[in-house]
Design a binder for these strands. Structure first.
Length: 293
DNA sequence: ATAGGCGCCTGCTGGC
DNA sequence: TGCCAGCAGGCGCCTA
């Protein structure tokens, strides 16, 4: 579910409510999440003070004293929030941490359980974890030269490149589509056919769309809520995502939905023309057949 | 190297 | 009302 803007909002909400507090006790439910929980980690966490709360891509990292780290991924339906201890436990709550000196708790809730919680005993372990997964740079730190290179040496389509967390971290299905619309590039456009000027446009579009979404506290479609439990508002600003058949805000022609990289993909066929100079044999054959008619 | 399909899960919606 | 297919902010594995 949550992409960079949603995770950023959660981290911003949680930071003032978590930093400086101690984890008095920590409980993990019986149902499996994406990664297994080692019961030894539970006792290691007891009494530890939370020092920082940061985001890396779509990951949430809690640094505790003595270099201990607690790392969350929200998958599709994950929620991480601080709630009053006395209110009844919401369904699908898999982690509860009591926060000392308050009547508050940190809850991790995840309906579909594609999310995860993992423990690391030191800074180096977390860094190695991200390094080994090949996690790419933050979009805001994306160097133009690196980005042009990534595009130039791949024959994957732009949608697939944007979704690849090893190229850049944090973009998911919504913001990939929104950024491609902003840059007026076709989602099927091949990376190696993109000109330097277009690569720059796309890089800036990604940053702009993410920043606007952060400002609106992310997009709430069904499950997403921020660290205080309230919804985002960027879903009101979607130009293409989930707008199949609705008029394009730029040209009024209907937005189309296709299946790409295994995901629903929305774009304006008129504003986002596919200008690949080197199209595949197959699509050339198709165009020829079409012109025969 | 790349696309596509599937699986991991639960819940919601729309059609019949 | 029930049933069934299809859909969903992610991601890793497999095959061709």
């Amino acid at each position: 579910m949550p992409e960079l803007p949603e995770v950023e909002t959660i981290v911003t909400d949680l930071r003032p409510r978590l930093v400086g507090r101690r984890i008095a006790s920590f409980r993990v439910g019986k149902k499996n999440l994406r990664r297994p929980w080692n019961t030894r980690w539970t006792s290691a966490l007891r009494g530890k003070k939370i020092e920082t709360v940061v985001r890396r891509g779509k990951w949430i990292v809690l640094r505790l004293e003595k270099g201990l780290h607690l790392v969350f991924h929200l998958g599709m339906t994950g929620q991480l929030m601080v709630v009053q201890a006395r209110q009844p436990l919401a369904s699908h709550t898999h982690v509860v941490a009591d926060l000392d000196e308050t009547d508050e708790q940190l809850h991790f809730r995840d309906i579909r359980r594609f999310g995860s919680v993992t423990f690391f005993a030191g800074e180096a372990h977390v860094n190695r974890f991200f390094h080994d997964s090949g996690l790419g740079p933050e979009p805001f730190d994306l160097e133009p030269g690196y980005w042009r290179n990534c595009l130039a040496r791949t024959s994957r389509c732009l949608k697939a490149v944007l979704l690849d967390q090893r190229v850049l971290a944090g973009v998911g299905n919504i913001y990939a589509d929104e950024a491609l619309f902003e840059a007026q590039l076709h989602p099927r456009r091949l990376g190696r056919t993109v000109r330097p000027q277009e690569a720059g446009r796309l890089r800036r579009a990604v940053i702009q769309v993410l920043n606007r979404a952060i400002y609106k506290r992310g997009s709430s479609i069904r499950d997403y809520v921020g660290g205080n439990g309230d919804r985002g508002e960027y879903q009101e600003e979607f130009r293409v995502y989930s707008r199949a058949g609705a008029p394009c805000v730029r040209c009024r022609r209907p937005i189309r939905r296709i299946r790409l990289a295994g995901r629903s993909t929305y774009f304006c066929p008129s504003c986002q023309r596919n200008r690949s100079q080197f199209r595949s044999q197959e699509s050339r054959v198709r165009s020829q057949k079409k012109s025969e008619w």
